[in-house]
């Protein structure tokens, strides 16, 4: 497929500053410049136009996978990443490319007014090129958004499993939310590591915040308890609500001699007794 004619490319190059102006105006009209600083926008548009023209001058076609488009692709990837972090949505980001279409077509129309056939061909080429570039932008935008979401999920996972030290030798892990295998893994790792670091003898897992306990959750809990025992520490499960106790019995789950307590206070009292710590009320 023929690329944009060199004639057209040189025209674009000559009219660069005018194109940029019209482009920015179009961007502003479409609301795509929200949160973007004026200078930044100007620099971005100018750089992009220069990249396009230089690629076209090198004889690049409309297939943007080609090596000549490498710089442009990288520029767009950087741009969409920035936009994704700024919190712009996908249409605003893609608009960056599509807003150039209007001024670009107007220029072509003006230049090739006398040759309708050539004009139509050039317009088709330009249209294909912009569509491809726009799609590439959206693809990268989506990928960076997904990366942001993944990172947030991981952070949430870390946040939701704090290991707290209740007493010298007693650790507690208040669990909140559903227990799945991935979370159990994170919980197990952080709890076991803390047991080693602090040399604690007793770990209390508080499941007050766990909405339901089914066979899978019970299995995960048992795994954690077994791992803690293997390390040479002891484990108490606290916060077993009446409904959960009923479910466990109804399901016929065997907690294999795991010590369970109704609430954290009872568990702590038991831990203290095991450590040989006694409290007396001051008179």
């Amino acid at each position: 497929m023929a690329a944009l004619g060199q004639h057209a490319v040189s025209k674009v190059k000559n009219a660069e500053s005018q194109l940029v102006q019209e482009w920015i105006a179009a961007l502003e009209a479409s609301g795509g410049t929200r949160n973007v600083k004026g200078d930044e926008l100007k620099a971005d548009t100018r750089e992009f136009l220069q990249l396009i023209t230089s690629s076209l001058e090198n004889g690049a076609g409309t297939a943007i996978g080609a090596a000549q488009w490498e710089d442009t692709r990288q520029f767009l990837e950087r741009l969409s990443r920035n936009r994704a972090q700024m919190g712009q949505d996908s249409s605003q980001t893609a608009n960056f490319i599509f807003a150039l279409k209007g001024p670009f077509f107007a220029l072509l129309q003006k230049e090739f007014a006398s040759e309708p056939q050539l004009l139509a061909e050039q317009l088709l080429q330009a249209s294909e090129l912009f569509d491809a570039l726009g799609l590439h932008t959206i693809r990268t935008y989506q990928a960076s958004r997904e990366a942001v979401i993944r990172r947030q999920q991981e952070e949430l996972l870390e946040l939701s499993t704090p290991v707290v030290k209740l007493w010298d030798g007693v650790l507690a892990l208040p669990m909140i939310g559903t227990l799945d295998s991935q979370r159990t893994q994170v919980v197990m790792e952080s709890l076991l590591q803390r047991i080693v670091d602090t040399g604690s003898e007793i770990a209390i897992i508080d499941i007050t915040g766990v909405p339901t306990v089914d066979t899978l959750v019970a299995q995960h809990l048992l795994k954690t308890v077994t791992a803690i025992r293997l390390m040479g520490a002891d484990c108490i499960i606290s916060g077993v609500r009446p409904q959960i106790a009923q479910t466990i019995v109804h399901l016929g789950l065997d907690l294999q001699g795991v010590v369970t307590k109704a609430n954290l206070a009872d568990a702590l009292a038991l831990a203290m007794r095991r450590l040989g710590v006694t409290f007396t009320k001051a008179q």
Binding site: M188, E189, L192, V196, A227, I228, L230, M231
Partner: peptide, 14 residues
């Protein structure tokens, strides 16, 4: 038996 590493304990359980 003393000094099981966390990773070892997890592996054994798995």
């Amino acid at each position: 038996v003393v000094g099981l590493q966390p990773a070892v304990a997890i592996t054994l359980v798995e």
